[in-house]
């Protein structure tokens, strides 16, 4: 919760918004007094810092870590969570992480087929909500389950 509070504080501040501006149009950001080099360094450090925190907590939960646990599968799963929940949104990432984990547990009886069902769902999300469920704050249930929906 503390982490979320800090992240949310940061991304709602103008200093945090600079990250978006540099991504969307760097030349414009530079012309509007944004120090783009500093902003990129902050983005990198910010990401690395939270990865470190997450790793530390993870090690405490399992009391055992080894490099093989963080293979390509883990990476893909984390990316799937972020895309599923929504890009550019703190709540999106939470929604994504919770849903993917829940689905993963609920679909356990399907065994092998779980790994068909989840990617399939991900593809559907990509088709109907290309930016993810809660991307860019324009969360609207109707656009998910409306006439266009799956």
């Amino acid at each position: 919760m503390l982490c979320l509070w800090i992240i949310n504080n940061f991304v709602t501040s103008t200093l945090g918004k600079a990250l978006n501006a540099v991504r969307d149009n760097e030349t414009a950001a530079e012309a509007m007094t944004v120090d783009t080099r500093r902003t990129k360094i902050i983005a990198f450090l910010f990401g690395a810092f939270w990865a470190g925190v997450a790793g530390g907590l993870f090690a405490h939960v399992l009391r055992y870590i080894n490099p093989a646990m963080f293979g390509i599968q883990q990476l893909a799963e984390v990316l799937a969570m972020v895309y599923f929940g929504g890009l550019n949104s703190v709540y999106g990432s939470i929604v994504g992480a919770v849903t993917i984990n829940l689905l993963s547990e609920m679909l356990r009886p399907l065994e092998m087929f779980k790994w068909i069902a989840i990617p399939l769902l991900l593809i559907l999300v990509m088709i109907f909500r290309p930016m993810g469920l809660v991307a860019f704050r324009d969360f609207d249930l109707r656009s998910v389950f409306g006439p266009k929906g799956p």
Binding site: T14, N20, N25, A28, A29, M32, T33, V34, N88
Partner: peptide, 20 residues
Amino acid sequence: RLWRHMTVLEHLKLAMYSRI
């Protein structure tokens, strides 16, 4: 060169970056 994912107000606030 506007920033697609930002509101009008955020655009102006960002241009005040150097005064933060």
